[in-house]
């Protein structure tokens, strides 16, 4: 302390110190996050004997997200139908509406929008739940009862999240395609046969559907991982839990959008 002289460099040094501390903190969290992921994944095989835990989490993570996914999927599909029709009809290409709606949903909006909704609906509640369990010493208590909370609490939630999101994204896309059909065919008069046949001609099982599913699996892993880690790593106070919950939604959404770009470039880059 006493060595600190008041030179013009002092603010710079302070700033550098802060930067250093920030970076160290960042790498520390990054490391902890990956170690936790490792421990969670190594706990997944043990869940074979505790499938009830996973079923229960599938309910609170998957089933409870179903409503928001179905409603959003329907509306997104309807909007795509309307906007797509308005654009395509200028080129006399409204027959391609099915292709447009399906490709947009299957490749992009299905995985991405459902991951964003999932982060808000299921991710935040996972973080809050685990954070509160930490704050009320339930996790500590479990450790003292010789039950590993990473295996007992985190692993089933993680697995349920990773399994749920691809299914939710598929539901989102399927409902969206029907929403587009409703607006395009029933309301705007696009030919029924053209809607489906153009779609089937252009949407490829391997390139589009599989890649969409792979995307949503990756998003499922990332979103649930962030949610579970933030809860487990939070400061065990009510303020800490609420901050962690916010961080989950923000970080998970950013991660989804960033990864989407990377994955899209990898999968669809070479047309």
């Amino acid at each position: 302390m006493s060595e600190k002289k008041h030179s013009p460099l002092t603010p710079l040094l302070d700033w550098l110190q802060q930067l250093g501390r920030f970076c160290l903190g960042f790498f520390e969290r990054l490391g902890r996050g990956h170690l936790l992921l490792f421990h969670i994944v190594s706990g997944i095989p043990g869940l074979a004997f505790k499938w009830r835990l996973v079923v229960f989490q599938l309910y609170s993570v998957g089933v409870l997200s179903l409503l928001i996914i179905v409603v959003s999927g329907l509306f997104v599909g309807m909007v795509l139908g309307l906007q797509g029709y308005n654009t395509l009809v200028d080129f006399g290409a409204e027959e391609s509406l099915g292709t447009f709606v399906a490709l947009t949903l299957v490749r992009e909006l299905g995985p991405v929008v459902s991951a964003l909704l999932f982060a808000g609906r299921a991710g935040s509640s996972l973080t809050a739940e685990i954070g509160l369990m930490k704050a009320t010493e339930q996790l500590s208590g479990m450790e003292m009862m010789a039950v590993n909370p990473v295996k007992r609490i985190l692993a089933p939630r993680f697995l349920a999240g990773v399994l749920s999101l691809p299914l939710l994204a598929a539901i989102f896309s399927a409902i969206g395609v029907m929403g587009g059909y409703f607006v395009g065919v029933d309301l705007l008069g696009v030919d029924d046969g053209a809607y489906w046949s153009q779609m089937q001609a252009k949407v490829d099982l391997h390139d589009d559907i599989y890649n969409g599913v792979i995307k949503s699996i990756v998003f499922g892993i990332v979103v649930t991982w962030i949610a579970v880690f933030e809860g487990y790593d939070c400061t065990p106070t009510s303020e800490g839990v609420s901050r962690a919950t916010t961080r989950t939604v923000v970080h998970a959404s950013l991660a989804v959008l960033g990864l989407d770009f990377v994955l899209t470039a990898l999968m669809f880059g070479e047309g």
Partner: peptide, 15 residues
């Protein structure tokens, strides 16, 4: 429902 949706995407939407 999830698998039905996947099935629909595979059969009805894709080629």
């Amino acid at each position: 429902i999830g698998f039905a949706a996947l099935f629909m995407l595979a059969m009805q939407v894709s080629n």
